[in-house]
Design a protein around this nucleic acid. Sequence first.
DNA 1: AAATATTTTTAGATTAGCTTAAAAATATTA
DNA 2: TAATATTTTTAAGCTAATCTAAAAATATTT
Lengths: 221, 221
Amino acid sequence: MATETEENYIKAIYKITEKNQGSANTNAIAQHLSTSPASVTDMLKRLSEKEYFHYEKYKGVYLTSKGIKMATNLVRKHRLWEVFLVDKLGFSWDEVHDLAEQLEHVDSDDLIKKLDDYLGNPKYDPHGDPIPNAEGKFTIRNQVSLQSLTKGEKGVVVGVREHDTPFLQYLNQQGISLGTEIKVLNHIDFDHSKNILIDNSSEKVLSQKACSNLFVKKSSS
Amino acid sequence: MATETEENYIKAIYKITEKNQGSANTNAIAQHLSTSPASVTDMLKRLSEKEYFHYEKYKGVYLTSKGIKMATNLVRKHRLWEVFLVDKLGFSWDEVHDLAEQLEHVDSDDLIKKLDDYLGNPKYDPHGDPIPNAEGKFTIRNQVSLQSLTKGEKGVVVGVREHDTPFLQYLNQQGISLGTEIKVLNHIDFDHSKNILIDNSSEKVLSQKACSNLFVKKSSS
DNA sequence: AAATATTTTTAGATTAGCTTAAAAATATTA
DNA sequence: TAATATTTTTAAGCTAATCTAAAAATATTT
């Protein structure tokens, strides 16, 4: 069994390589884990012997299939716990990350299987992120950034790109959550903000940044 | 925040002092935690500075109120998670101990509060052990060992003294669980075993050892 | 290509928690 | 009480994970 620290390294490498065309460098890992680059080098040397990833000095690392399997399993556990916390315990979507970060390290395949069934085998977590299945496969979905919708077009919110707490809380305030229907009333060229209609009732203005962080499923307009 | 190891030491000391008139010695702690007496001495020296217990060389330790608070909170968390695993996820009472042992270290008062509410503020865990409230208070119950029932007397199973897996699985086989009604048909003097009637339907023989490990609430016979 | 900046690694130390072996203290028995 | 047994502590050392400071390698700029 891997230690919690080891699991966190693998997950960090996975997250970074997701964005970074397949490889993660020392500094990025250090930043992601709030530790020093020296510690990371140290850890990479020791961990690479366990075959979770390939490591070449000064060249960064990339995960092996063993490492990917471990990482997706952690993602799976994290997201299932998030569903539990929101759907069953009544937490809000902006409160669950740190808790899931702890819970994901609990080690029991049986537990995860039972939890998954109990939650109704959800395919997406409370932020709209896909939950990989036991084999590590993600369910892909038809989605676009809200930014790409033009005047008159409509969509249903299905996810958020970044899910830092302030952004989620801002969405709460605006009355936007998963399932919210958004119609683009107007696009302001000047600053790329948008005038939108939320659930056919209230008008709001969303900045370019907010729009680019919202994923929607286009619906017929 | 205390580390997981620290929490395990405090809990071990608590469990031992519960049986051992208020103090725990080095060997007992070592055995309880499957570690060496030398490690325990080492740890006691370091931990006693954090005021969880009083430690005097060669004299063993006893918990301070700060330590007792921490221990009962761990017991609370452990037992609430056990209720969750059995009531919600469908685990059997003989499968939940090790999992709860992991889950009890998850750190969040808010989580425990919400979990408690979600479970309906249970007062007892799946083994019939009382769940301390947030202030560390246990709900006491009228109970006696099955051993003390005499011929003709009846009782309802409300708990088990030891809950090692083999014993619980044995009870499963015998069709005995919390809530089972037991009537003593006969007491065999020779080996102190008992002839019992389970839920008014099936007759069984229970050894002295089994009887002494079962708690019942006496009912009118 | 040389100079500068950035990134990564090495070196040397620290802390928590553990180990074994030996020494010291306490408890038990003859 | 002396001898023996048990318990506890000390001593020395290990591993995982971290740190800072310095050195080495790589990347960027002039």
